[in-house]
Design a protein around this nucleic acid. Structure first.
Length: 586
DNA sequence: TTGACCACGTA
DNA sequence: CGTACGTGGTCAAC
């Protein structure tokens, strides 16, 4: 089918701008589309050699800009890899995670949950084909839906082939799941507020963004990175022997402070503890802050702390890390996922979320480009003010620095106020902030009750939902309430729940901001290349820097309005145009 | 080889 | 005995 005919057909089927259109892709072969009970296939096993099905996707995107219904981020990745940009999506796996909690799952479970089928009945593909044939259930093997209602495992596993009728069927099933998810989300919205559907769209958009960041990577200057690493661990060893020599040399700097005849492996914390004990220094563990406390008592402690820093650079963020993750195109790549965290934060591999600040100087915009770096200030206490609807805290959050009015209200200094507020959200029970915590209760009872309520639910093993509707699972069914359960475990779960409702809601706002920025900068030749919980890094043409910075700012206001309509809480952002990530505030 | 634990970087 | 994550190390149990 030619493209214009396809667009006409979609329109005749009732697809308007922004309407859901299911899309399935067999890379290099064909696509399937579904709208309102109708389905089409382009390419597949009947593809003419010159047909490029994905150009049809681009044409439909341009003409209709639908909300593409995708089974999972794998489809988004397939599109990004061929350079195809889509604006909006409904990612069935991401929406499933929002509705039902937990981490990303296979589509068999997504299907089952959407159809209220028991999850323990989800078929799996056995490693041995012969064995799996024995367990094959009855029914037409051509039908992806088994008689018991579950998806046939080979389909769920991606083995649905590329025949046109299967492309059509697979797209139709995706659309069916999307309909059911929408109904489930509406039920959640009835019970928890009207935001779940909005969140689902934003979480789906985050999956598109993650696919783009995974493929695009982070611009990094190799020479700069190497010199930074060299500053910690010395020049790159030319062979294994040199590497060993370098390592032994580093060890020797510490070992020369160790009494003669004592053998100690610096990498073994058990042995470090024994060593310190022999020197008359007793420590509960060997964490850096604890070692710093006893640093004055023996020179080996300081040497060990310096060794630790170099060792970290040498192992986690050393030359091997650079070689594994920095491509020949000068892009540092890791795998991004939209909501792997239990509370729904983004995650990234290759250490992209925990890159030492020292290495940020090596993240450099490409020639003719700049970074627009933006971060949200004090996002968590501001989110608390919104989700708890505490008017007094919201009033404080009308200020650029909300800890100042809170400190005045509590009649403590700013640092104490900050510690107390953060402690309330993390579940601190002891420490200097204890008295300030009591004052927090008196001054902001609504916010504190919100946190206490979340903690209480979590302690009892009851699931929570964030402001945006994400289910926070509190362990297996029946967890909590057991009289034999250690009180420490109960308290730990309480702290977790208390924090998850804040961290999760903050993640939802952040992702809304990120996907809004993504949408608004698409036409400016700019791309989001890093998301760091409350920080965005945008790679933009130098000539567009001011425009992009303005868009980032406006996108934040737009996102806050969409996330929490009518709120008086301010979400100030620090936005700067820089050429290195290390510039500006860090 | 695998999993628990520790340690430490980021937010 | 404030949270989350990913990564790489040791150590004990396979």
């Amino acid at each position: 089918m030619v493209t214009s005919g396809l667009i006409d057909a979609l329109s005749r089927a009732g697809a308007h701008r922004g309407d859901p259109v299911a899309l399935v892709v067999k890379p290099g072969s064909g696509i399937g589309l579904a709208v309102n009970g109708q389905a089409w296939a382009v390419g597949g096993s009947e593809m003419a050699p010159t047909v490029s099905p994905l150009s049809d996707v681009a044409a439909i995107e341009a003409a209709l800009r639908p909300r593409w219904v995708l089974w999972s981020a794998a489809t988004a990745s397939a599109l990004v890899r061929v350079g195809l940009h889509i604006s909006t999506a409904w990612d069935l796996t991401a929406v499933h995670a929002l509705l039902h909690g937990g981490w990303r799952v296979d589509v068999g479970r997504v299907w089952a949950a959407a159809h209220d089928l028991p999850l323990d009945g989800v078929p799996t593909v056995a490693p041995d084909d012969l064995f799996s044939a024995l367990h094959d259930v009855a029914g037409d093997p051509e039908d992806p839906v088994q008689p018991d209602g579950h998806l046939r495992a080979v389909w769920a596993d991606g083995g649905w082939g590329d025949r046109p009728e299967r492309l059509r069927r697979w797209a139709s099933l995706a659309l069916d799941v999307a309909d059911r998810q929408l109904a489930q989300l509406t039920a959640v919205a009835d019970a928890y507020g009207p935001r779940a559907v909005v969140t689902a769209r934003s979480e789906s958009g985050a999956e598109l963004l993650c696919a783009e960041m995974t493929v695009g990577g982070l611009p990094m200057d190799r020479a700069t990175a190497e010199s930074i690493i060299a500053g910690f661990v010395g020049p790159r060893p030319r062979n294994d022997a040199e590497a060993v020599e370098l390592r032994l040399g580093r060890d020797a700097e510490v070992l020369r402070h160790v009494p003669a005849g004592v053998e100690v492996d610096l990498r073994s914390n058990a042995q470090i503890k024994v060593l310190l004990s022999r020197l008359g220094i007793e420590v509960a563990d060997t964490r850096a802050w604890r070692l710093r406390e006893v640093q004055g008592r023996h020179p080996v402690v300081g040497a060990l702390l310096a060794w630790r820093k170099a060792e970290r650079m040498g192992t986690t963020y050393g030359y091997r890390w650079l070689d594994e993750h920095l491509g020949p195109d000068g892009r540092l790549r890791g795998e991004w996922s939209g909501s792997d965290g239990a509370a729904g934060r983004m995650t990234a591999s290759a250490g992209l979320h925990s890159m030492p600040a020292d290495l940020r100087a090596a993240v450099v915009a490409e020639s003719g480009m700049v970074f627009v770096r933006a971060d949200l200030g004090q996002i968590e206490p501001r989110v608390l003010a919104v989700v708890s609807a505490d008017r007094a805290l919201a009033a404080a959050a009308g200020e650029d620095d909300m800890y100042a009015p809170v400190a005045a209200q509590l009649d403590v200094d700013r640092a104490t106020a900050k510690t107390a507020v953060l402690g309330a959200m993390y579940g601190a029970t002891t420490g200097h902030g204890a008295q300030a915590l009591r004052r927090l209760d008196a001054s902001y009872p609504v916010a504190m009750a919100y946190l206490a309520g979340a903690a209480r639910q979590a302690e009892a093993g009851r699931d929570l939902r964030t402001y945006g509707g994400r289910l926070i699972r509190m362990g297996p069914a029946g967890a909590g309430g057991s009289s034999t359960e250690a009180s420490g475990a109960v308290a730990a779960r309480g702290r977790y729940g208390r924090n998850a409702v804040i961290q999760g809601a903050a993640a939802e706002l952040f992702k809304m901001w990120a996907v809004t920025v993504r949408a608004r900068i698409a036409g400016l030749g700019a791309h989001i290349i890093l998301c760091l919980h409350d920080e965005l890094l945008v790679h933009a043409l130098r000539s567009q820097a001011t425009a992009v910075a303005e868009v980032v700012s406006q996108a934040l206001e737009e996102s806050v309005r969409r996330w929490a309509p009518g709120t008086s809480v301010r979400f100030p952002a620090d936005i700067a145009v820089i050429t290195r990530w290390s510039e500006a505030k860090g």
